[in-house]
Design a protein around this nucleic acid. Structure first.
Length: 566
RNA sequence: UGGGGGAUCGUCUAGCGGUAGGACGCCGGCCUUUGGAGCCGGCUACCUAGGUUCGAUUCCUAGUCCCCCAGCCA
């Protein structure tokens, strides 16, 4: 038996690559590419593709994965996106080793290929309007019919195409189309558009061009030019493959890449479409591309996700052709698993409840020794100040404790983590509202953490902070952005209606242990018993701000739910 | 009612004619100064119907269901 941990991911695409390597199909070369269009930020779905393409390249000796910006539509693309994409790929831990390309680099060569196509009688300039073209295209069940311009002489096509480039015609007046088969049952083969006129400035080529190549033309040729061996894309391009192959073959490129399709990633309760993500950002329904509630790489990163966790997730969801929706819990599992090993533990009280230890001397404090990470002895220990007045979590006290509630209640004992066992002796309430404002407790000096007298067992240990030493902080809790399954929302209704109004909970009165005072943006911690948190860039000298990356698994909340069936 | 794909535990995924496996999740238990982590055990699946075969999730046939395609988006 081989150790599954040492074999790495395996899937049908890697099998194809391995088979090609075995037969020497590409002379031992493995060249993949990640080809984003710079019209938005990368999200977790792109991460799957990145891990696949760069992963395959990394696994094969001499393999390489190109980063190519598929920038053939100047109206939606922007250098801001180019920057963010590069940043995200690097952050995820991948390197294109200088192989960074742009489809726009190939515009001149693409033009030359197109001229050859025209000369061969394989492409023509069509002057139908967009509406007419739609009519001529036919339907799913009826064949299309030839455009009257389909038989335009080569010389005229050449002249028109040259003048399209020169900018002589307004948008929409002409297109260059492949001459394939208007009766093909595959609609993509019914003379697809190769070039369209667009008098728009391109972020890289400026106004040099007044027409731009279409994806179906630029993409296969870009792959061929770069010597891509395996061109991996998502399922919706499956029926474009005959066109992909046609373009490569007709252009007589020296190299023949193979397109292979796989199912894109879907995640429960996550907004994954580029269109919707853009809508959230532009309508300011979220704070930006890095809002921790959206599954962009920037959002996940700000939320506290690690590149390692995202990569582990991508390696474990697999690559296949069936449509699938991965449960968010799986992503959460991988971030918990990673953070459990690496993040230092601290005590932080999110919803403070004041506790006075009546028999503890006033005006003094003692330092308690706390373990930084029980999973990593090398992380050492730290000192946490303890004193007479503390704060504990409101959830850790119940005046009328339900069954199986092990925490503090009148007359009950709990251990204060790394400190003493305390007993609740009294409850102080607001005379007007009846709300609990303070707990009175006594402590047992013989039960100090780590002391030799420490024999007594209590059912629960709770976290705390010392009132005189604690540091105030804001804590942001994130809940799913969508209240309903995104795939269940009918296309004609406004999907933003299903946004969860409680997706962001800002807790402003939190108190954290003093060791956190100097924590800098990006630092990750486990708040004991609560979850994993990271310092948000909004943190300033005026105050700490934490994001909850993910909660800890919570056995009590499950018990509680079964107790009160609603 | 054209064409292209796909159907295996609740979810994701393996299987390549020979005991249907893993992960997440869920349910028990152990352990625990985090109701965390860890450990142990359990749960649930081959879309249907025929056929080939000693033997079918796998091969064949016919169905059923799901996804994608009628942008001058990618």
């Amino acid at each position: 038996m081989t150790d599954p941990a040492s074999t790495g991911p395996s899937d049908f695409i890697r099998e194809i690559v391995a088979a090609d390597q075995a037969t020497g199909k590409h002379g031992g070369r493995v060249v993949t590419r990640f080809p984003p269009e710079p019209n938005g930020y990368l999200h977790i779905g792109h991460a799957k593709s990145i891990c696949l393409n760069f992963g395959i390249a990394n696994e094969n000796p001499g393999g390489i994965c190109h980063l190519r910006f598929d920038d053939t539509n100047p109206t939606t693309e922007d250098p801001e996106f180019v920057e963010s994409i590069q940043d995200d790929v690097r952050w995820l831990g991948f390197d294109w080793h200088g192989k960074k390309f742009y489809a726009s680099d190939y515009f001149e060569r693409l033009y030359e290929f197109a001229v050859v196509l025209i000369q061969k009688g394989k492409a023509y300039v069509d002057s139908l309007t967009a509406d007419q073209m739609r009519e001529y295209r036919g339907t799913l069940t009826e064949p299309g019919k030839d455009s009257p311009y389909r038989t335009r002489p080569v010389d005229e096509n050449l002249d028109l195409f040259r003048r399209m480039r020169a900018g002589e015609f307004p948008d929409g007046t002409h297109v260059l189309r492949a001459k394939i088969d208007m009766a093909s049952p595959n609609i993509n083969l019914r003379d697809p558009v190769l070039y369209r006129i667009r008098h728009a400035a391109h972020y890289r080529t400026g106004t040099a061009w007044s027409m731009y190549p279409a994806y179906d033309y630029a993409h296969p040729l870009s792959d061929a030019i770069e010597g891509i061996t395996h061109s991996i894309c998502t399922l919706e391009f499956e029926d474009h493959r005959p066109l992909y192959d046609w373009v490569v073959a007709e252009s007589e490129a020296a190299h023949r890449p193979r397109q292979i399709e796989f199912a894109r990633l879907n995640l429960t309760f996550a907004v994954m479409s580029k269109r919707k993500l853009l809508e959230l950002v532009t309508k300011k329904l979220v704070a930006g591309w890095d809002d921790p509630r959206i599954p962009t790489i920037k959002g996940l990163r700000r939320r506290g996700y690690t590149a390692e966790a995202i990569r582990a997730f991508c390696d474990h969801i697999g690559v296949a052709k069936r449509d699938a929706i991965v449960e968010m819990q799986l992503l959460e599992f991988f971030i918990r698993e990673d953070l459990n090993k690496r993040s230092p533990r601290v005590m932080a009280v999110l919803n403070p409840l004041k506790v006075v230890i009546e028999n503890y001397p006033e005006g003094t404090a003692e330092d308690m020794e706390a373990v930084n990470n029980p999973e990593d002895p090398a992380a050492g220990t730290r000192r946490v100040p303890f004193s007479r007045v503390l704060y504990i979590e409101q959830d850790d006290f119940r005046e009328d404790p339900p069954k199986q509630f092990f925490r503090l209640a009148p007359g009950r004992e709990v251990r204060l983590r790394y400190a003493y066992i305390v007993k609740c002796t009294g409850v102080v309430k607001d005379p007007q509202t009846g709300a609990i404002t303070e707990l009175r407790c006594t402590y047992d000096p013989d039960t100090k953490s780590g002391s030799s007298q420490e024999q007594r067992k209590v059912k629960a240990t709770i976290h705390w902070v010392s009132a005189a030493h604690a540091v105030p902080a804001e804590v942001r809790l994130y809940n799913p952005l969508l209240t309903t399954d995104p795939t269940k929302v009918s296309p004609d209704q406004d999907w933003t209606q299903s946004l969860n109004p409680q997706s962001l909970e800002r807790l402003t009165g939190c108190l954290v242990e003093p060791s956190l005072k100097q924590a800098s943006a990006g630092a990750r911690f486990q708040f004991e018993r609560t979850g994993y948190f990271c310092v948000d860039p909004d943190t300033s000298p005026n105050g700490l701000v934490f994001n909850r990356t993910v909660s800890l698994k919570d056995a009590w909340s499950k018990i509680e739910k079964t107790q009160k069936p609603s």
